[in-house]
Amino acid sequence: MKTWHCPVPPPFSEKVVLAHGEGGKAMRRFIREHISSKLALGSAMDDSAILNLPQKQLAMTTDSFVVSPLFFPGGNIGSLAVHGTVNDLAVAGAQPIAISLALILEEGLEISLLENVLESLRNAAEACNVTICTGDTKVVQRGAVDKLFINTTGVGCLQTKFALSSANVRAGDELIVSGPIGQHGMAVLCAREDLKLVPTPISDSAPLHQECSALLLGLGANLRCMRDATRGGISAVLHEWAMDAQLSMQIDESRIPVSAEVRGACELLGLDPLYVANEGTMLIAVARDHSVRALEVLRQLNPATKAAIIGQVVPALSAPVVIRRLHGALIPVDEPQGAPLPRIC
């Protein structure tokens, strides 16, 4: 026999209930007390945000965040939802202006947990100087999502007259990675599987808009392309560029920065950091002889940067991406195949 339960939340609910997403008073109060206040937004609940933008050419991007666990060393789904979208704008050469925020909440979610996520989302947005200009909240039945999913859509103003694109990449261009690779993917994996590695990998989740602006300013048209190396790691980006430009990407294993903890975790699990996700690390292609200047620009922003020149663009070889390992042998790098699975032994 089915039992009925009242959908109206108790007055001091600590958990999200379906009524919080069903319009009406409970929803209005929930948004006011637990969402708008945490994000320091005004009380207006108009259907659209009106943006005043300084120029006509806009960049727009959208991304959904479903990371599990919600909190991991170096960040959480809130900060990630800002960094991911800001970085997609930044690497396209746009100055991020505003983002939307759509929340899909699972019935029964702890409200305190939601508030923690929103607080870090707000801090991240402030640090990136983007406004959270519009939003949406849905509550779905238990089991329909894993606690909390977030979608953010971002708009930004293009800072250049020339578009940054992988079509700009030329043979002879030099390849730079902006920091140690594989941090985010391994941090999330170790947290999700409770692997208890010491020291544990920490996510690189961070905004890249300042680095991108500085590179645009410092290198002008000698900056060919930038891409944040998220899912599929730097291998995925290199493959995209190679395919788009009909050239090959040649990298040198010994020059790719990988932290000891990521390297250790990858060795243990049989994973290759080239395929592991990043959330605050990008690949940069610059014209020949401009990589040193690019590194200077990055060092001015952060003297401790681990950015490194890792290779160059070459005329098409037998494989789109090749890596120099050990005694100079050039080995193809395969395109990522689905999620990396840890090996048996």
Binding site: R325, H327, A329, L330, I331
Partner: peptide
């Protein structure tokens, strides 16, 4: 052996 190009060398 393949990853480090030993086989072909």
């Amino acid at each position: 052996l393949l990853k480090y190009g030993i086989e072909s060398t």
